[in-house]
Computed example of a mutant assay.
Amino acid sequence: MKNKGKNKPLFFLGDRLEFPSVEESNEEGLLAIGGDLSPERLLLAYQNGIFPWFNEDDLVMWWSPDPRMVLFPEKLKVSKSMQKVLEREQFRLTKNTCFERVIDHCAKQKRKDQVGTWITPKIKEAYLQLHQKGFAKSYEVWAGTDLVGGLYGIDLGHVFCGESMFTLVSNASKFAFIKMVRELGASGYKAIDCQVHTKHLESLGAEEVPRTTFIQLLSTS
């Protein structure tokens, strides 16, 4: 079985805790298939610029796209309308108060051109384990006592790898994202990993950088 466009054999992961070089990814960013979703393997993946993404009935698929969508905190863009939302204080932000509820909402969020969700029960269980170990974190947005938005991702200490966000009311997920970026930027974080390009992320200041640049960011604390 060959990778499309690169004429290289796909890597099938076994029980050993390892990944091939990200340079072996195909043109779509697919690097390897198989392996488990243990906390140890997931952390090794994120530390090396790799993340899992697959449908419920598929083998685990591991990706490292080139270019990589990244937001540098100092380049965050906040529109005038969102600045007014922030100033009105119509929302309240918390952190790590209901991680499981956030990931459940992210799994149910309807997205354009997406059928079903990649946040399968196996993914949920794996990230709950990472949360219990202090690596997976959530930001929650409240309107009064109602949870109306939020996001979660993997915290590497100097780079935050965003995984998914949800919103139940207008601007709630943007509120969470902007607040998170400002907090992490003030704490010295180098970048927010956004994985792949979307117009929404681009409007907030994220940009595509070469994968080599992103790997260098990961390797320097």
Rank of each mutant, 00 (worst) to 15 (best):
M180Q: 08
S38W: 13
E27C: 09
E202D: 15
R101C: 02
L147C: 12
N55T: 05
N26M: 01
I215W: 06
A136K: 11
S203A: 13
K6L: 02
A45L: 08
L128M: 12
G14N: 07
R92N: 09
G150M: 11
N171G: 00
K95A: 10
S138N: 01
I123A: 03
L217T: 10
S38L: 13
C98D: 14
G205K: 05
L201G: 04
L204H: 07
V22G: 00
I178S: 07
L10F: 13
K108S: 10
G157K: 06
G49P: 06
F51D: 04
I103D: 02
R92L: 12
E74R: 14
Y152W: 08
K199S: 12
C98V: 06
D58T: 04
F72E: 05
G149D: 06
F72Q: 02
L76T: 11
P121G: 14
C98S: 13
G188M: 02
L10G: 03
E183L: 13
T213W: 11
V22C: 09
K108V: 04
I192W: 11
L168W: 00
L17P: 03
S221Y: 03
V159F: 03
M165P: 07
L71V: 01
D15H: 09
L201Y: 01
H200I: 08
G153H: 08
G150W: 10
Q47D: 04
E27A: 13
F72V: 14
L218K: 04
K77G: 01
A143Q: 15
Q216C: 02
D66R: 02
Q132I: 01
L10M: 11
F91K: 06
L10H: 13
F72A: 03
L130T: 10
A206H: 08
R92F: 11
Q129K: 15
Y152P: 03
Q83G: 09
P52C: 14
V196A: 12
F12R: 11
E74A: 15
K80G: 12
S221D: 06
K122G: 00
I103R: 03
L156I: 04
E74C: 05
M82Q: 10
L93A: 12
P73D: 14
M180C: 08
K122F: 04
Q132H: 13
W53M: 06
P67R: 01
L37H: 10
N3I: 00
F12L: 15
M180I: 12
K75E: 14
E28Q: 14
L151S: 13
M165Y: 10
S64F: 11
K137Y: 02
S173G: 05
